[in-house]
Amino acid sequence: MARLLVLEDESVLARHIKSTLERARHAVDVVETIAGGIHALRSAGYDLLMLERKVTDGDGVRLLDFVRQAKSAIPVMFLTARSGTDERVGMLDRGADDYLCKPFETTELVARVTALLRRPQQLAASTLTAGNIVLDKATRSAMVADKPLVIARREGMLLEQLFARSGQVVTREALDAKLFGFEDGASPNAIEASVYRLRSALSSLGADHQIHTVRGVGYCFAP
């Protein structure tokens, strides 16, 4: 199951997309505005974005720019009535991964989502860099000042989530949703324990970015 964020301000269509993708066993959040989309992206981790171009507070391409400027390789699909070739090429050149014109068949929508979610990780931007830290998303391995960062799988997932939102506050709830499944039975201090171990490992190698605690909210990965 993947977690998807849909930007769509036509309520009937939004409900249809949500129910279609939920039947395909995905978790779906719908927002009607760009502001709502930015808030959702800062609050939770998503596996795919589906964006309308024209919504009440602007152009959905602003969310595409937001995630690409944050060095996130999350797949982005546009769902829009704009069908011109120049329009499609422009969005793909700007960093979108797919473009589906309205009206569309639900079977095609599900098929395209499935294809984007299963694409080889190496096709995405699989390497992230922050200061003297380099993270390989495909293997969740990292180097600090050319030295390997030896961490457990859970801490690797944590580092990826924080890395993708460098300089932004990531809530504990968002990290919990990405690191622990519904049936994992995570203890109340599981996130804190993972942060402590990752923070210690980074410090021991002289990392110039660290995990800062934002009391009562979450964490921020920054110099």
Score class of each variant (00 low, 15 high):
166 S>F: 04
158 L>V: 04
10 E>L: 10
134 V>G: 01
70 A>F: 00
93 D>L: 03
171 T>R: 07
60 G>F: 00
38 I>E: 12
219 Y>W: 11
45 G>E: 06
8 E>D: 08
106 T>D: 14
57 D>W: 11
192 E>P: 03
65 D>A: 14
29 D>F: 05
151 I>N: 01
131 G>S: 06
132 N>V: 01
104 F>M: 13
207 A>D: 02
24 A>I: 06
140 R>K: 11
49 L>Y: 07
137 K>F: 03
36 G>T: 05
84 G>E: 15
179 L>Y: 02
203 S>L: 14
189 N>G: 12
214 V>K: 07
194 S>D: 13
131 G>H: 08
152 A>C: 05
105 E>I: 02
29 D>M: 06
42 R>L: 10
158 L>H: 07
101 C>D: 04
187 S>V: 03
125 A>I: 08
217 V>A: 15
130 A>M: 05
55 V>C: 09
166 S>Q: 14
50 M>P: 01
125 A>S: 15
136 D>G: 08
206 G>T: 03
35 A>H: 10
65 D>F: 04
131 G>I: 00
141 S>R: 12
125 A>M: 07
36 G>H: 02
161 Q>R: 15
31 V>T: 09
213 T>K: 14
110 V>A: 13
86 D>K: 11
8 E>M: 09
60 G>H: 02
187 S>C: 05
72 S>C: 07
164 A>E: 13
52 E>Y: 05
101 C>R: 09
103 P>L: 02
40 A>M: 06
184 D>G: 11
210 Q>K: 11
166 S>H: 12
102 K>M: 07
218 G>A: 10
76 V>L: 04
95 G>L: 10
155 E>C: 07
171 T>M: 00
29 D>A: 11
77 M>I: 06
185 G>L: 00
196 Y>I: 00
77 M>E: 08
144 V>N: 09
33 T>Y: 01
48 L>E: 00
192 E>D: 15
92 L>C: 11
177 A>N: 12
113 V>G: 05
71 K>L: 09
3 R>Y: 03
98 D>Q: 08
159 L>Y: 06
101 C>K: 06
103 P>K: 08
193 A>M: 13
175 L>Q: 05
106 T>N: 15
45 G>T: 09
150 V>R: 13
179 L>P: 07
165 R>D: 01
75 P>R: 12
136 D>Y: 08
183 E>G: 13
169 V>S: 04
74 I>Q: 02
202 L>Y: 01
74 I>C: 03
94 R>D: 07
107 T>Y: 02
54 K>H: 15
22 E>R: 13
207 A>P: 07
95 G>H: 10
90 G>N: 09
102 K>T: 11
146 D>W: 08
117 L>D: 03
64 L>W: 10
141 S>F: 12
106 T>G: 10
176 D>A: 15
147 K>G: 06
43 S>I: 04
102 K>L: 13
12 V>R: 12
221 F>L: 12
80 T>L: 01
138 A>F: 03
159 L>E: 11
145 A>R: 06
180 F>W: 05
26 H>R: 10
158 L>S: 06
201 A>P: 02
93 D>Q: 12
210 Q>G: 13
118 R>F: 01
46 Y>P: 15
82 R>W: 10
132 N>R: 06
13 L>N: 00
191 I>H: 12
122 Q>A: 14
132 N>Y: 02
153 R>C: 06
